[in-house]
Amino acid sequence: MHEATLAENILNIALEAAKQNQAAKIFKIGLTLGEMAGVEVEALTLSFDVLKKNTPADGAELAIKRVPISAVCNKCGKIFQLESYNFFCPACDGILILQSGRELLVDFVDCE
């Protein structure tokens, strides 16, 4: 249940950004979450909905973009999108190095 910690961090980042821009109300927070970031979206949304009450983000929704797992071969340099957790190169005998899929980002905050 580290989603509660993540939700708290997301809320703090958004509130800080709104404050710096003299915005009174946040209505959307854009997130980028990698498929291998270990985040349970339902738990994250639930935690966020509890934490946002009585803050300027009270009416805010989370717009979540997922990033697939991609990896590059350390030998042939080819890039693959992974459907399973197999980090051996399908094209040669190299090893795949994770390139994307671990993202945990607040992309944008929509406010007024």
Binding site: N9, I13, A23, A24, L105, V106, V109, E112
Partner: peptide
């Protein structure tokens, strides 16, 4: 009220 989109690209675990 003016609508505003703030671009952040900030790591959620950045503080940690």
């Amino acid at each position: 009220m003016i609508k505003l989109e703030i671009k952040l690209m900030k790591n959620i675990l950045g503080a940690n």
